[in-house]
Design a protein around this nucleic acid. Structure first.
Length: 934
RNA sequence: GCGGAUAUGGCGUAAUUGGUAGCCGCGCCAGCCUUAGGAGCUGGUGCCGAGAGGCGUGGGGGUUCGAGUCCCUUUAUCCGCACCA
């Protein structure tokens, strides 16, 4: 029998399925291990060859650990809510649920062909009401929680109400949109509506007037991580800042815990740095500048409290509420014109031209330390969303303030001895203070400290830590997402009772906003809440007594992906996201594999969400992902043809410099080793059916480039095609063989024959030329055992270190050596089969069966190695003197340094090498080299 | 601008973590077997040189008996953040 991968793989995939081979249950007698992949968004394009990279790596790891006796949870599911399905729905009228369903079916088919060991009985889909009821449930809990900084955890809002009634805001240390101050008496005097409005500032899920990223083209609000350089990440449409009433999550409350938690995680340093940067902790002081002839005190945040003596003006962000309040009548026109101009500029324009612009409000504030009057300006270089939306400007020591001061001819007062600010500001935090009153003579570092103390003592302000991490915008004006379990009574939001969940997504006639500009849910015929019947009823029935309109926006994509890893632990539980017992068993994800693109999105949100669930006792671990491996992106290799501009004439790549040409992407299936299938191309692109082709050596050579793998570049490689041609085991091996997992790499199929050949070579260790099974019961030689045990040791170490490319190489070397030795012995081939099982499970099963090994190779213990066997054998070492002279010497492994020295000095050749010189020292590296140092 | 990472044959990469640089694979060359083949097998393959030999891990410097690996410096590429006060 020849190695017929198609047959073998089909056979074992069917058997695994019918045996439920990879189903797991909690088992207190075995150690658990939770190995998770980031679940995919099922797009219409299907899986490309890049998607399974991480899945294969984690599958190898999961299979390996399973063979070592771990009870491995290795599930898979779908992040099924998302923009593309909705936009497709708008274009075609097809319900997103239908297309999503179809895409999922396609994904499943593709995944099944690769031979993963997922427990599909635990599949989770975010758009499934049985799942998203827990997304809605968490939202309700957030709505009814506030964050207490003293306890460092989320607490029920009722508790806060009790505090307010007893002591008002005195002594309160809690997360809040805007700090308020009232007494218990004042609290009790508030109306119900006022109390609710006040509480809204404390809730972890709150309705707020927030500056949001509004994308007009998508018709929705986007989160910060969904916007890059002023454009939407999806689609690349312009995004503007807008103040809107939106649901928000108070992620900022968890900033410090999100930061601290990173230290204990087994993530790459660069990923942790990215998150640290995104959280953006900075220590400084907040202090107030009194505005003259007004009762306004402008609060500013600064990390350079030492520079207050050099504050020569202040700047407000254009969006700041104080602008209108402080602008004098004389300056009104100029300021209004400036605000108008800024509003028209998009975020992107602002970034593109960094021209200094601004306007004087006419108001003056008083520098609290110098007592001088300083002008208050408005400029768009100050951000509304960071700090207080106002700054104290120190032009001598901040380059942005410097540019502004220069442009508007404002005074610049240097504060550091000997610094030159005639050309540029001196931003470095070094030197000795001058012109700074009581700070004179101190170093900058000392002065920062002293100034902060002074501010706190004199009550000018207080020491404060500021974070860049902002609250997450949580509303999307879209259809295809989780509905909010919220109805509105007298304009105030109320949550549905938890017992009424899930609140299912209603059907609508179209997926577009309503004519009135409401989100698509405004079209739903039945989208009102009957508080008496606790049921969704027709929208038309809304009245003033018991029936109220439901929230029209839906939750963003990250909502559903923020707790799915907990659901896998107990996926069918109707009473909890996950039951206490399964949760206590599986705890958290031991290994999480996925792309870096989620560094500041999913991986922040889900940590936040998990910490909240931890606070309310819904999960037993504070951090969801102990270890995380980022697989590098698999890029595509695109091919191009070159069209002569203005002519229906295409020239081969080597000739393109002779003409003025235009690059055109060509489908890579029409290109083989850079040679274009000209006839195929004509058929593919009818507009070139009668084009003329200028060839080189009778061939049309295409150009190429490494780009993102995408449909529009025509460079997508489908794993199905690889499986068809080479088999799943070859695909698995080859994806690992490509290089280190974390590295980005272009897909290049040209090396795949090598690993395919390896599998055939392996097959031939079991089957002879005629194709009959031919394995002997003879005892292996020490040399054969050494080859085996060395490989086992190497492969074990490599899998533990997640160095799967070198593990595959080691297996290939092993097969080569056994072939060279002509070793076809059962005692060697049995462990070898178990060794390759995680990598090439189908082939391993087949060979295992042929060996008569028992039910399934996936259930046998992973082979171990005998260190003694490896140490016993003699090896050849070179000896060198001062790294120059060398000759060979045979020594036994496993000697101590002293033993080796004795042996060495007794060796006549060492004596000759030394030539009478005394031996100063020597370097003995077991198994490697002996170097004599004279 | 700030932060992080990477740099090794024609290509993807490896190097027992400071110890003979280039394992494994692709490609290429030669041979065998078949020969219509992009099939299979065996051997060779860092560069220069006929040879002895010399040179080689982006460039420059350093530490060391010994450096791809450690330190300083510089260049290039990729990624993240980007008016964060």
């Amino acid at each position: 029998m020849e190695y017929n991968f198609a047959e073998v793989e089909k056979k074992w995939q069917q058997r695994w399925r019918s045996d439920n081979a990879y189903r797991v249950t909690e088992d207190a007698d075995r150690p658990k291990l939770y190995v998770l992949d980031m679940f995919p968004y099922p797009s219409g394009a299907g899986l490309h060859v890049g998607h399974p990279l991480g899945y294969i790596a984690s599958d190898i790891y999961a299979r390996y650990k399973r063979m070592q006796g771990f009870n491995v949870l290795h599930p898979m599911g779908y992040d099924a809510y998302g923009l593309p399905a909705e936009q497709y729905a708008i274009q075609t009228g097809q319900h997103p649920a239908t297309t999503t369903q179809q895409n999922i079916a396609r994904y499943r088919e593709q995944l099944d062909k690769i031979g993963f060991s997922f427990d599909w009985s635990r599949e989770v889909r975010t758009c499934d009401p049985a799942y998203y009821r827990w997304t809605q449930w968490a939202f309700i809990r957030m709505f009814h929680s506030y964050y207490c900084y003293d306890a460092q955890q989320a607490r029920p809002v009722e508790e806060l109400v009790g505090v307010f009634a007893q002591q008002g805001t005195t002594g309160l240390n809690v997360a809040c949109s805007e700090e308020l101050s009232f007494t218990a008496v004042e609290w009790c005097a508030k109306t119900e509506a006022e109390q609710q409005q006040t509480l809204m500032r404390y809730r972890l899920a709150y309705l707020g007037e927030a500056m949001v990223n509004w994308c007009a083209a998508l018709g929705t609000v986007l989160a910060n991580d969904e916007v890059a350089a002023g454009l939407s990440v999806r689609g690349g449409h312009p995004v503007e800042q807008r103040k809107m009433r939106q649901w928000c999550l108070r992620t900022s409350a968890y900033a410090q815990r999100l930061l601290d938690g990173l230290d204990s995680l087994g993530w790459s340093e660069s990923l942790k740095e990215t998150q640290r940067g995104w959280i953006g902790r900075s220590e400084g002081a907040e202090l107030a500048f009194r505005v003259k002839n007004s009762d306004v005190a402008l609060e500013v945040f600064t990390t350079r409290a030492d520079t207050i003596f050099g504050v020569t003006f202040m700047v407000l962000a254009p969006e700041s509420g104080y602008v209108a309040q402080l602008t004098t009548p004389a300056q009104r026109q100029e300021v209004d014109a400036y605000l108008e101009a800024t509003k028209r500029r998009t975020e992107r324009d602002r970034m593109a031209d960094k021209k200094v612009s601004g306007a004087f409000t006419g108001a003056y504030a008083t520098n609290p330390l110098t007592g001088e009057d300083i002008p208050v300006w408005v400029s768009d270089y100050v951000l509304a969303g960071y700090g207080t939306g106002a700054i104290m400007a120190v032009p001598a020591h901040d380059s942005r303030d410097y540019a502004f001061a220069r442009h508007f001819r404002l005074p610049i007062v240097p504060l550091i001895e000997g610094c030159d600010v005639s050309q540029e500001s001196f931003d470095a935090k070094e030197g000795v203070m001058v012109n700074s009153g009581f700070l004179n003579g101190l170093t900058v570092q000392q002065a920062i400290q002293r100034a902060k103390e002074h501010i706190a003592e004199t009550k000018l302000g207080k020491v404060k830590v500021n974070y860049r991490l902002r609250d997450a915008a949580f509303s999307r004006q879209r259809y295809w997402g989780e509905p909010f379990p919220v109805y509105y009574k007298d304009g105030m939001p109320h949550t549905l009772p938890e017992s009424c969940l899930p609140l299912e997504l209603p059907s609508v006639d179209k997926f577009l906003p309503t004519e009135a500009g409401e989100p698509p849910l405004g079209r739903a015929a039945a989208w009102a809440w009957d508080t008496e019947k606790s049921a969704v009823v027709e929208t038309a029935k809304v009245d003033n007594r018991a029936i109220f309109p439901l929230e029209l926006s839906t939750m963003p994509g990250f909502a559903g992906s923020s707790a799915y890893f907990i659901r896998y632990m107990d996926p069918h539980n109707p009473r909890a996201l996950a039951g206490k017992a399964p949760n206590a068993y599986w705890r958290s994800v031991d290994l999480y594999v996925g792309g870096t693109e989620h560094a500041t999105g999913h991986l922040i949100y889900s940590r936040f969400w998990n910490k909240f669930l931890y606070d309310i006792g819904a999960t037993c671990e504070d951090e969801p992902f102990r270890k995380l491996v980022n697989q590098g992106m698999v890029q595509g290799r695109s091919s191009f043809v070159y069209r002569v501009v203005g002519a229906n004439h295409l020239v081969s790549a080597g000739l393109k410099d002779r003409y003025q040409t235009q690059e055109i992407h060509v489908d890579i299936s029409l290109v083989d080793k850079d040679v274009l299938d000209v006839e195929g191309f004509r058929r593919w692109r009818p507009e070139f059916a009668d084009a003329t082709f200028e060839l080189e050596d009778g061939k049309y050579i295409c150009g190429s480039a490494v780009e993102k793998m995408s449909k529009s570049m025509y460079n997508v490689v489908n794993p199905d095609d690889i499986v068809e041609k080479y088999g799943a085991d070859t695909l698995r091996l080859y994806e690992m063989f490509l290089g280190p997992l974390e590295q980005a790499k272009p897909w290049d199929t040209s090396g795949i024959d090598g690993v395919h050949r390896f599998l055939r070579k392996l097959w031939r260790l079991f089957y002879d030329r005629q194709g009959s099974f031919d394995v002997s019961a003879e005892a292996p030689t020490p040399q054969e055992l050494k080859v085996l045990h060395r490989t086992v040791k190497k492969v074990r170490g490599d899998i533990e270190a997640f160095s799967l490319n070198t593990a595959v190489s080691a297996l290939m070397i092993c097969a080569n050596e056994l072939t060279d030795l002509g070793c076809r012995k059962r005692e060697v081939l049995r462990p070898l089969t178990a060794l390759i099982a995680p990598f090439a499970p189908h082939l391993a099963e087949e060979l295992w069966e042929a060996l008569g090994g028992g039910a399934s190779v996936c259930k046998v213990p992973f082979p171990d190695f005998d260190p003694a066997l490896l140490a016993e054998s003699a090896l050849e070492y070179p000896i060198s003197v001062n790294g120059k002279l060398r000759f060979k010497k045979t020594l036994a492994l496993g000697l101590s340094k002293e033993e080796a020295q004795q042996l060495l000095l007794a060796d006549p050749r060492a004596e000759a090498l030394l030539g009478g010189r005394p031996l100063k020292s020597f370097v003995y590296v077991p198994g490697k080299i002996i170097n004599l140092v004279c």
